Each structure stands twice: as structure tokens, then as C-alpha cells.
Simulated scan of single mutants.
Amino acid sequence: MAITFKNKPVSLQGNEVKVGDIAPNFTVLANDLSSITLADSKGKVRLISVVPSLDTEVCDTQTRRFNEDAANISQVEVLTISVDLPFAQNRWCGSNGLENVKTLSDHRDLSFGEAYGVHIKELRLLARAVFVIDSSDRVTYVEYVNEVTNHPDYHAAIEAAKAAK
């Protein structure tokens, strides 16, 4: 799959995830530095929003948009994953008043980035992507955004999250 960052090709490391796959497990850090895995949200529909850094305009918009849209979807947990440090994520969430999305850090070992094929080798960032995982841990929606500075298809992701069981 061809991904660019500011119109320059970049290399993704890890395994590409496809619709129908069993969602790979991962370990990331919560804002309090506790470890979080996919199993921690077992039995729920998960919308995983992947961003390079919350401190950029598109990532900020993406996280806010899914936070707002998630308020209208019952039984869906929204996780935003970036390589930002947990302290920075906590500061960002606190100053922006977001309540419907959990920010998680893949900074420590890029476990999520490798498991979902979004680790940008050249930048040690995560490529922009969205995944929907149903309550049985099956992937029902995947979008790897081909240009990292572009927005994902918000409508399609939200509709996929609403349709997932």
C-alpha cells in the first residue's frame, strides 16, 4: 500500500489489517501510564482513530470529530492512538474537554503501529488510519489514509461503527 507524508512516499512497518481479520492484540499506555490492550475493551464495538500527533490541525480535528460523533452512538468505545507521550495526551484532553474518546500512547514500543501496519519507519509516527472492531474482535472497517496530512472518511467510519455489533 502506498502512503505519503506531505506528498513524499514513506514506508509502513507492520502487518496490514483487512476487513474480516481478527483484530490483532496490542499494548499501549493510558494517560496514567497503565497498560491497555485490545482485551480491555472486549465485548464492545471499538472505533480506533489513529493519528500522528494530537498537536497538529488535522489530528486535532479528527479527534474532536470522533469525540462529538461518538456521543450519538451507544455501545461504541472510541480510542485515539498516537505516539504522543501520555503526559501530552492528558494535557491536550484536559485543555480541550473531550469526554467521549480515550487517548492512548503507542510511544513506548509501537506495539499498535506494528500490529496494524501503521508505523511510519522514517518518522517514528503512526500513519493516519481508522479501524472499526466489532464486539467479537472482528475488523469490520479499515481506512488507511493514503496521504497522512489528509482527513479520513468520517461519515463512513461512523456508519461502520453504528452497523457493527
Rank of each mutant, 00 (worst) to 15 (best):
A2Y: 08
A2F: 14
A2M: 11
I3Y: 11
I3H: 06
N7R: 13
P9D: 15
L12Y: 04
L12I: 03
Q13K: 14
E16R: 11
E16Y: 13
K18M: 06
V19R: 14
D21F: 01
A23N: 03
A23F: 03
P24D: 10
P24A: 11
N25G: 10
N25Q: 15
T27W: 01
A30T: 08
N31R: 15
D32K: 15
L33N: 11
L33M: 13
S35V: 06
T37A: 13
T37V: 03
A39N: 11
S41K: 12
K42S: 13
G43H: 11
G43Y: 09
L47D: 00
I48W: 07
S49N: 13
V50G: 00
T56N: 07
T56P: 04
D60Y: 11
D60R: 09
T61I: 14
Q62A: 05
T63G: 07
T63D: 12
F66W: 03
N67M: 01
N67S: 08
E68A: 10
D69Y: 09
D69T: 07
D69C: 06
D69I: 02
D69P: 00
A70Q: 05
A70K: 06
A71P: 00
I73T: 01
V78L: 12
L79G: 02
T80C: 15
S82T: 13
V83R: 09
D84I: 05
D84H: 06
P86M: 00
